[in-house]
């Protein structure tokens, strides 16, 4: 397996040290938030993703790029507990018990994690929203699942979050189907972030949106990631999106990682044949 670390050991560690110490708002992390060890998922004889390992540190955004069918979404599914990998470990640094292998957790524990400390932003907001429930209800669901039983406070939190994702709070009682695509996506983000998660999984969060809406959404995401100290695994085939959001990059092809490194380094000085092809294929305006 060809795995090239474009960053080179030392630069990489320095860069990481700079990144973490610069955000003095947050305490120095003791260890990675998410540790992925040799995760493999096969669909029969075909490979979904094979032998994927990486660490994700608090406050870091990791981009996963590659063409369709390269195993990006399979990897994301394995990490977020939606798919069960055939081998490997996914260690998540829980608040109360330290690093725990999420694959060996019981279903209720994983569900609890998924609606408190994790966020999952789907490409299609219809997959992540309840289309028949008002915007406020969508945002409040996580709070209610967590035991909130005070209507006034739930509504307050919902309207606060609608404001933060730039949705007019006057539309709190409208259903998502009355929203535009960009608004639906922002609502999905609010619905996920209301519980103050520490890790977000994003599957093509800007896919299918026109460029000006994309730009605003990216701006919003960048702000939220920075303000909340959120870590994220961001799957996309759009290199411009990872350039803007991701600190580090994983390039996948045929279910394997072919290159990793700092985003700018990978994109400006791609080492692997496939990465070179990928970078040179981007259309210039």
């Amino acid at each position: 397996m060809a795995l090239l670390d474009a960053s080179g050991g030392d630069i990489f560690r320095e860069e990481e040290a700079r990144m973490t110490s610069s955000s003095s708002k947050y305490p120095e992390p003791d260890g990675p938030l998410l540790s992925v060890r040799s995760v493999t998922k096969r669909y029969g004889a075909r490979i979904g993703c094979e032998d994927i390992s990486f660490d994700l540190w608090p406050g870091e955004v990791l981009g996963v790029v590659g063409e369709s069918g390269s195993g990006k979404s399979t990897l994301l599914g394995c990490l977020s507990g939606q798919l069960r990998p055939d081998a490997g470990e996914v260690l998540f640094d829980t608040r109360d018990r330290g690093p725990v292998d999420t694959l060996r957790m019981s279903e209720p524990q994983r569900r609890h994690l998924a609606r408190t400390d994790w966020a999952f932003v789907h490409q299609n907001p219809r997959d992540g929203l309840r289309m028949g429930v008002s915007a406020g209800g969508n945002v409040g669901e996580r709070l209610m699942a967590g035991g909130a039983r005070h209507y006034g406070r739930i509504r307050e939190a919902a309207s606060d979050w609608l404001g933060r994702v730039e949705i007019d709070t006057g539309r709190i009682d409208d259903r998502p189907r009355q929203f535009s695509g960009g608004m639906q996506q922002r609502l999905q983000i609010a619905r996920n972030l209301v519980s103050g998660p520490r890790l977000a999984f994003m599957d093509e969060p800007t896919g299918g949106l026109d460029v000006s809406v994309q730009a605003r959404l990216l701006d919003l995401l960048r702000g939220l990631v920075r303000d909340m100290g959120l870590s994220a695994v961001l799957v996309t085939h759009d290199l411009a999106v990872v350039r803007l959001l991701a600190d580090r990059l994983i390039v996948m092809k045929d279910g394997r990682v072919v290159e990793t490194g700092l985003t700018d380094q990978v994109l400006d000085d791609p080492q692997h044949d496939y990465t070179q092809l990928l970078v040179s294929s981007v259309l210039q305006v």
Binding site: S134, G136, E141, I154
Partner: peptide, 18 residues
Amino acid sequence: ALADYGLMQVRLYEDIAR
């Protein structure tokens, strides 16, 4: 099975909101 009844509360929330 998991007594994960946040959704039930959403139904009542929607009632009050509307």
